[in-house]
Nucleic acid binder design. Structure first.
Lengths: 219, 219
DNA sequence: TTTATCTTGTGAAGCTTTTCACAAACAGGC
DNA sequence: GCCTGTTTGTGAAAAGCTTCACAAGATAAA
């Protein structure tokens, strides 16, 4: 473990998450070790990048051998803060909210949707697999009672800013926002925007505007 | 319009998409012009960044005045390749597929899901709002008949690589991948990965590991 | 022990992206 | 027509990120 927390770039963190996914696969395949080259190949980056990313947090490899899969997986979980369980509150019980509630991969990583909230009175009171849908008014109570620090916003654009503020007031510190609006919140609140339209637009640009290739890889 | 296509970074393209969203809002609010400063504020970046981004594609502003909202919106649509309709094939009629099919913001930007495909025989044959769910075996036929160049992959991880290859063989040029695996395809195929778990993990890291703030803004 | 082979960890170089800062352009009064 | 106050467009500087390249550490075999 590094003595003092280094400032790490967002791209590094996102790659660590990819490495973790690859390591899980290797672990399941009972591969004992992996080289930076192979890890890079599987994660879609370069070997040097893998080594630089990991070296920010410590020396996890052995020269001549590579990295031991299982310990490295544990290190990454530790770095990403995944050794604990993260209770999550889901705001919005529409199509997207429902899909996210059922999404099996969240729970595998310790993210558990423990509360669902919606503004539609018709939906309030229903049960999703044991979790009762609560009215938005109960947000504050729910967050406090369940001790959730993470919230997922899966509601229409018009309501998003106000609801995000309500989440923050309730004590939420990180928000995953699926609503197509830029949220403006206090800087200490961590927000990740998932912009589905933008992703398609990036494809549209690539096919229409130019012909960029998405091909790094090497070392 | 620039004489020859400049090489544009991915981040620039993603910001252009954000600017477009802001401009639509401004247009609806009947604001005739906008300065780089205000646009930056609404999109969550810096004024200099806005000007640099736009200047890669031409001179759309007037000094002392700012940018005319409506023409700039049209320029951005043109740049992003959104003046046309993009038929899209959706692979996977599960929870996420269903949510994406109903997602209203795709159609607003010209992305229209014209075909749905699933490997589950129980789902095949059903109709979603006039679109019949086809078996995966028909992928090639469907893509060719409807002339789709974009595909959305909303299927479990185990099946994703093979299905992606099938999409490519059918003639698809761009893929939006929701399956939690790294796809390995020919470099001329444009792939955008949406990794929902990764997004939560980035939040987890931010709350756990360090206390980075997400606060640029200024000029 | 020595040699051959492998692979990490990491400064330094190279490249990309963002920010700075200012000349040039425009509008509106006076 | 001439000032005043704005705001763009853009080279240049700064910051950030990725790749290079190699010494150092590790194993295995002779």
């Amino acid at each position: 473990m590094p003595p003092n927390l280094p400032s790490v770039s967002d791209s590094t963190i996102r790659r660590l998450s990819l490495y973790l996914r690859v390591l899980e696969e290797l672990n399941e395949a009972s591969e004992p070790t992996v080289s930076s080259r192979r890890l890079a190949e599987l994660a879609g980056t370069s070997a040097a990048q893998v080594r630089k990313d990991l070296s920010r947090f410590g020396s996890f490899g052995k020269r001549g051998l590579g990295y031991a899969v299982d310990p490295l997986e544990r290190h990454l979980r530790e770095i990403l803060g995944l050794q604990r369980r993260w209770p999550v509150v889901l705001v919005g019980a529409g199509r997207i909210g429902s899909a996210l509630f059922e999404y099996p991969y969240f729970r595998e990583r310790g993210f558990e949707i423990v509360a669902v909230v919606d503004r539609d009175p018709a939906k309030v009171g229903r049960r999703w697999n044991g979790v009762k849908i609560e009215p938005v008014e109960s947000l504050s109570k729910v967050v406090r009672e369940l001790g959730t620090e993470l919230g997922i916003l899966a509601i229409p654009a018009d309501d998003a800013q106000a609801t995000a503020e309500a989440l923050v007031n309730a004590g939420i510190r990180g928000i995953l926002n699926f609503a197509p609006v830029q949220l403006h919140l206090r800087p200490e609140i961590v927000v990740n925007e998932v912009n589905l339209t933008l992703e398609l637009e990036a494809l549209s640009f690539a096919l229409h505007g130019s012909s960029r290739a998405t091909s790094p890889e090497r070392d």
